[in-house]
Design a protein around this nucleic acid. Structure first.
Lengths: 214, 214
DNA sequence: ACTATCGGATAGTTACAGTATCCATACTGA
DNA sequence: TCAGTATGGATACTGTAACTATCCGATAGT
């Protein structure tokens, strides 16, 4: 297919597709002449993946390029791809020199029996969150971490099962992307639903009846 | 204190503080004369909260204004504040007319025994995620939702306990903000840690030894 | 008295994510 | 076949968000 059809199939405007081509988010089409190229089903799929990361995941174009690089690297293990992807998804203001936050994070990781890897992005992100919590006067926040871990453990199992439940390695790698980007968004939504459900019940116990919510 | 000290205490540059004042994220200082104002401890605290939302939560200035509006509204119930805050935190591309995604979401909510509130932000966000998943060919993704819910339920309990464990109502409202913004970030980090832990173990079983990770 | 700082208003900057325009070709339908 | 539309690629432009910088006359502190 040519660019117009690619645009129709994916819902992305032609100039934006050209932009993505320039930025290397989309491989060039197969050239059939100097100014004529053919695009495949793979291009449609890749384009949708890019849009999902940009719109739902809120990733920057640079971060998407990073992730796709990991996807396309045939050497990359699933394990390493996960690292790249978590790094791309997280806000880039990693790290903090807050000693107390660092200590809270270290204690947490060891309490969970996890390997202490202070250089990993996820760990740094955690320290950053704890440091911020302390800055706004919520050092108590760290007490919630074990609850988070209890929730995260089965989630990680499910993630991995989902990823491995695919088929080919390409599919598994894509499963990592989908599981991470859509997974974080879905988890946030489900968590909000659960919280609302609970606080709705609590409120209903105090002031019976009447519907609410936007 | 005057603006220079407020800047030093919070780590935010003076011109940025002025910008936040203009944008209504920070209440004006108490004027002591035509061009002299005094700022309080509350301003320092509020400023840190704003930075946490912007930097860690990735909220836009408009979203932060929204959230602070909910915080400052004395009429607002905890329940409603939670709604406002989840809405501000979520990406703004809500909703989708994908019938199948809508059906998956409805079935999920009812399976969980939760109230079906198709207008709520959290529900719309969920539909959006499911629709996107389908677009990228991952209709299987919906199968993970029940796992998410199992994880989210105890989390919501912990959230609420944290919020109510504060003291005054102001503190509780702020707990909602912190619990949501920092909570989402922390959950993403902990989830990444858990996933890495697990996939590290799996990998170690196949190819023994050698350290990895950035 | 004098100099640094202040608040407030206005204007400018930077980065990002697209959009728009050109142009020389290539395809397409009457 | 040939007018008219579409294409790939290069370059230039736009819009928005989040700051920054400059200027001003008015204090504040010494």
């Amino acid at each position: 297919m040519r660019i117009a059809e690619l645009s129709r199939r994916s819902g992305v405007p032609v100039p934006t597709i050209k932009y993505y081509l320039r930025e290397g988010l989309l491989p060039a089409g197969e050239l059939t002449s100097r100014n004529q190229a053919r695009y495949s089903e793979d291009h449609v799929h890749r384009l949708r993946l890019v849009r999902a990361m940009v719109e739902l995941g809120g990733l920057s174009i640079a971060a998407v390029r990073e992730v796709l690089g990991a996807l396309d690297d045939p050497e990359k293990s699933l394990h390493k791809a996960m690292g790249t992807i978590s790094a791309a998804v997280a806000p880039p203001d990693l790290g903090s020199d807050d000693e107390a936050a660092h200590e809270q994070a270290r204690a947490f990781v060891e309490r969970q029996g996890w390997v202490y890897r202070p250089q990993s992005y996820a760990y740094q992100a955690l320290v950053g969150v704890l440091a911020t919590a302390r800055e706004v006067g919520h050092e108590r926040f760290a007490e919630m971490l074990d609850g988070f871990a209890d929730a995260a453990r089965p989630l990680a199992e499910a993630d991995l099962a989902y990823v491995l439940g695919g088929g080919s390695k390409d599919e598994a790698l894509e499963g990592v992307v989908v599981g991470t980007v859509l997974g974080d968004a879905a988890m946030a939504a489900v968590r909000a639903l659960a919280r609302r459900e609970l606080s709705g019940v609590r409120q209903a116990e105090e002031t019976p009846s009447q519907p609410c919510d936007p």
